[in-house]
Amino acid sequence: MTLDDVLASLFPDGHDVRNDEGVVLGSAVLRSGTGMLVVGIADRTALGIDEAIRLSGYVLESVGRDTGPILVLVDSDSQRMSKRDELLGLNEFLAHLAKVLIHADMNGRATIGLLYGHSAAGALLATGLATRVLVGLPGADPAVMDLPSMAKVTKLSMEALEEKAKSTPVFAPGLSNLARMGAVHMTWSSAVSLAGQMEALLADMPAVQDKRDALGKERGGRVKAVDIAERVRDLALQTR
């Protein structure tokens, strides 16, 4: 789906969401009357310092004014790979965006990521993976690491990697692999109204606690993470 398709299906009564060179900012009112802040990155734009600061600023400005949930739309490239971005501290800008989203989520503004296109690496960490619930749409094609780059580093052929990818979701690109990890909570249907699916999610929003590791175990993608984290936590709590 294109950004316009997504927005039209989510907000059939209209919205004021604008796409300015890949930076998506605006708001909309759901049919239930709930106001929703909308931010995002579109058109497979790389997420660099210039984009990130606008997104974080827009969310911060809304604090105190708005109370509704925050939607983060994601169709990005990777983080912008450039000398200028790194020189000026891209890691701080991306972390800041993630922090603003996490802080809002923990202070009564539920955050929902909607991954409808591509995303990768640092861009995904600062957007979709910094929300409470990440939803995937059919056709989304996230890739933490693309197979040609992996082939180069691991010195394995593409065929060998593709063969290995059949037995594990742990490294290969794709929405279903991220879902099995617990990173993508649910995949919506693009055949029915997104508005209805959004209303249903908001009516039954999971608790603010991060349960992605438990989800990853349940789905068989990350069998060890939740148990290791629990064990370390228990041992650490005993030191009190």
Partner: peptide, 26 residues
């Protein structure tokens, strides 16, 4: 950064750590 051979698990681990850092600080 992310360990290539388990890129999806590593990426998500980093997302969980970022969340956990912020929750600890809050």
């Amino acid at each position: 950064g992310v360990r290539l051979q388990e890129a999806n698990a590593g990426e998500l681990a980093i997302a969980e750590i970022m969340r956990a850092v912020m929750e600890a600080r809050i």
